[in-house]
Design a protein around this nucleic acid. Structure first.
Ligand SMILES: Nc1ncnc2c1ncn2[C@@H]1O[C@H](COP(=O)(O)OP(=O)(O)OP(=O)(O)O)[C@@H](O)[C@H]1O
Length: 741
DNA sequence: GGACAAGGGATTTTT
DNA sequence: TCCCTTGTCC
């Protein structure tokens, strides 16, 4: 089978592994993901399994999508059935939509995302007059308890503390409110599936018999329920094949348990363990630096990693005089690199999202196209969430959180005191808020105006619900926008510009709904995708320059990588300094960052980063991870130690840093004055076929038209197009699938 | 009930 | 610095 020719002997061993548990334990860039892809193709081509009996689990939806495409490429087109490739969460949702009635929920359950959870917990804190606690804190404790099979009843006993009783009470309320709302949070998606399989062996056997081969990527970041799920699903056939790297476990804060991978061989006796030691991604220098850093950790098995790639450049570390100056330094190097290697893909990686600011500013000023992961994703925009909340209420009227979100959005005379009356009534009677509308409207103490508003809202809701099974989702959404005068609200609240952007997003959502139905998906499949889609799933993989957190970068690779903000207190983060366990996780994060780089790696830091815009008292020290790197492979480490004299604002046109770099001549020719056109010209590379205003284009649905205007909004471009057939429309370029004429 | 201003708190990482 | 919550006034 020639497919095996592109694999080294160890990889091939893994791909050809027969039945029974297997663990591929290997360092970064050694081809773990590649092994999964090839193994799936191999199982299918060799006839070991039909495609649909294979389940592969990835960490993100994006990774799932990519894996699907890679398998297609190996297998060639036109297969009738497909393997199921999905995240754990998406897999569970799919399954629960069919099976959850066993657990007493209705199949039209809602999914509460982090924002919904917070709203619910805030509400609970208010109701129980515990407003001194932060919803976020309580939720993280509750989540931890849930994921460790600790019920509210035993919580105080298991985790004794001053607030334990309180937390336990809140936990109990939270759970019962979720259940009453016919809603599941992200944790529940996994936990309810585990519960289903535990309580109903027949259901477990059904799925276990169906999915004969189960493969898991990034196993080092699985949590306990995911582990249990895996055990339940593979108890019979034991065909569980996982790949991972204990040095890349970076999601402890989300419940990931590194012990899953460390004790896999014990958990699944008879495991065949395969190590991959050749790295295909990075230069020798990059690999050695990465290895030197992670070697300072103790909670690891240790591994060798070598490469046939060339030594590559020495890594450069730069100490900047301010965060702004750091960004200028990085951008100047990006400009140089883009002249030298126009097709290189670049990533700027940092510890926390707020650090993207300066890089965005400078990139925009220089007119360099870029995308940011972590800016507000499409489905988390306010206007989109509003619309989704309407849909959720219509399909699951018990969804109190969604109802409270929209009950007075747009403002319709149902103010805070009326809302309070509604929640009180619902709480007292143990009914959903949608059922309290009527009662509160009729209540003698409700003011006439409020009563009228409630009746009107109730009628609208009824009307929409009557349409829910006959109208299309798109039609229903259009109707909601119209009935609620949503656009008028936007125009009143914000600039016309902003209102237009938001309406364009709503129109996009409506089109997405139409496409979803054209694919014969149910409304729930549409809503589920919205709930589970993350920003990372929406990024343009072809973008030349990507800004993102180190966490988001896991699993990706870039020719050129910048690791910015390497300061004590920031990276490693201050919160991790007093626990060795947490510190080791930070170090793994650093290892992940370094090993994203194929060709070149640059490091940077500044003693003088401002926090909250103000001067941050003491200058910062360079990150300890810099000290852990071998001095002969990294230049500029000597610039260590904070200088207490601040440089003058260092202009990027005359910085005195190494002019000896190959980027030298390129620089002068590239630096220009920032201008408006430049900013507008900054566009995702995928669309570099450059749509411009004045251009004639064709749209699948609207026909031919002329682009009147094109503006950047976040990672997207908003196009105003006049179509000859349907007139003026505002579209988002990324989704519009336009064809230039 | 809603518009607007002032003030305080926020930044760790996300399916 | 900025955003969101809270308080004040119509
Ligand atoms: N046998 C091989 N021959 C050529 N290239 C390979 C081979 N194996 C892997 N690669 C390449 O090495 C790079 C890393 O592979 P892959 O992403 O599968 O590694 P990984 O172990 O999953 O990495 P990470 O742990 O960093 O996510 C990819 O560009 C891949 O194409």
């Amino acid at each position: 089978m020639d497919m095996l020719e592109n694999l080294n002997p160890e990889q091939r061993l893994a791909v050809e592994h027969g039945e029974g548990p297997a663990l591929v334990l290997a360092g970064a860039g050694s081809g773990k993901t590649r092994v999964i892809v090839h193994r799936i193709a191999y199982l299918i081509l060799r006839g070991a399994s039909r495609p649909e009996n294979i389940l592969a689990v990835t960490f993100t939806n994006k990774a799932a999508q990519e894996m699907r495409e890679r398998i297609h490429r190996l297998l060639g087109p036109s297969r009738s059935a497909e393997p199921l490739i999905s995240t754990f969460h998406a897999f569970c949702v799919r399954l629960l939509r069919r099976e959850i009635h066993f657990l007493g929920y209705r199949q039209d359950f809602s999914i509460y995302d982090t924002d919904d959870q917070k709203r619910l917990m805030k509400q609970i804190l208010e109701d129980s007059h515990r407003e001194e606690l932060s919803a976020r804190e309580v939720l993280s404790r509750v989540s931890y308890a849930k994921n460790h099979n600790v019920t509210p009843e035993v919580y105080a006993h298991r985790f004794p503390s001053e607030t334990a009783e309180e937390i336990a009470a809140l936990y109990r309320t939270y759970d019962s409110r979720l259940r009453k709302a016919n809603a599941l949070d992200f944790d529940d998606l996994l936990l309810k599936t585990v519960e289903l399989f535990t309580r109903y062996a027949a259901r477990r056997d059904h799925y276990s018999n169906w999915f004969r081969y189960i493969l898991v990527d990034e196993y080092q970041d699985t949590n306990r329920p995911q582990y249990e799920l895996l055990r339940l699903l593979t108890a019979r056939h034991r065909n569980v094949f996982v790949v991972g790297d204990e040095d890349q476990s970076i999601y402890k804060f989300r419940g990931a348990d590194i012990r899953n991978i460390l004790s896999f061989e014990k958990d699944f006796p008879g495991t065949r363990t395969i190590k991959l030691e050749q790295n295909y991604r990075s230069t020798q220098n990059i690999l050695r630096v990465a290895g030197a850093v992670v070697e300072h950790n103790t909670a690891r098995k240790g591994k060798t990693l070598w490469t046939e790639n060339h030594a590559g450049d020495v890594i450069t570390c730069h100490r900047a005089s301010s965060a702004r100056s750091e960004a200028c330094w990085v951008v100047r190097r990006i400009q140089g690199s883009q002249l030298e290697n126009p097709d290189w893909r670049t990533a700027v990686l940092y510890r926390a999202n707020f650090l993207s600011r300066n890089f965005e500013d400078v990139l925009r000023e220089e007119g360099i196209p870029y995308t940011v992961v972590g800016s507000v994703g499409f489905f988390s925009r306010m206007e989109v969430k509003d619309m989704l909340a309407y849909l959720r209420v219509i399909h699951n009227p018990e969804d109190d959180v969604a109802l409270l979100r929209i009950v007075n959005t747009p403002p319709r005379g149902i103010g805070s005191s009326t809302v309070e009356a509604l929640t009180r009534k619902a709480l007292d009677e143990g009914i959903p808020i949608s059922q309290a509308l009527q009662a509160v409207a009729c209540h003698p103490l409700t003011p006439a105006r409020a009563s009228r508003s409630l009746r009107r809202f109730h009628e609208m809701l009824d009307a929409w619900m009557a349409l829910r099974d006959t109208a299309t989702i798109a039609g229903l959404l259009e109707r909601i926008v119209r009935d609620t005068e949503y656009q008028a609200m936007l125009e009143k609240q914000e600039s016309l510009e902003e209102a237009e952007n938001r309406m364009a997003n709503i129109e996009e959502l409506i089109r997405a709904a139409a496409e979803s139905q054209a694919r014969e998906e149910t409304v729930f499949e549409f809503l589920d995708r919205a709930s589970l889609s993350s920003e990372l799933d929406q990024i343009d993989t072809n973008a030349r320059v990507v800004l993102m957190t180190l966490h988001s970068a896991k699993g990706l690779e870039f020719d050129l990588v910048f690791l910015a903000g390497l300061e004590e207190g920031l990276f490693p983060h201050a919160q991790s300094l007093n626990s060795n366990e947490d510190l080791e996780e930070e170090r793994r994060l650093c290892y992940v960052g370094i090993t994203r780089a194929r060709q070149k790696l640059f490091l940077s830091w500044t003693p003088f980063r401002r926090s909250y815009g103000a001067d941050a008292g003491m200058p910062a020290f360079p990150s300890r991870f810099l000290d852990e790197m071998p001095g002969d492979l990294v230049e500029g480490l000597g610039e260590s130690g904070p200088t207490y004299v601040r440089d003058e604002e260092e202009d990027y046109d005359r910085g005195q840093e190494d002019m000896e770099t190959p980027f030298r001549q390129s620089r002068r020719s590239v630096i220009r004055r920032p201008s408006r056109q430049d900013a507008a010209a900054a566009e995702p590379a995928a669309s570099r076929t450059a749509f411009r205003s004045g251009m004639r284009v064709r749209h699948a649905q609207f026909g031919d038209g002329i682009i009147m205007n094109r503006v950047r909004i976040g990672n997207d471009f908003k196009l105003t197009i006049t179509f000859s057939r349907v007139g003026k429309k505002t579209l988002i370029e990324r989704f519009a699938k336009l064809q230039a004429l």
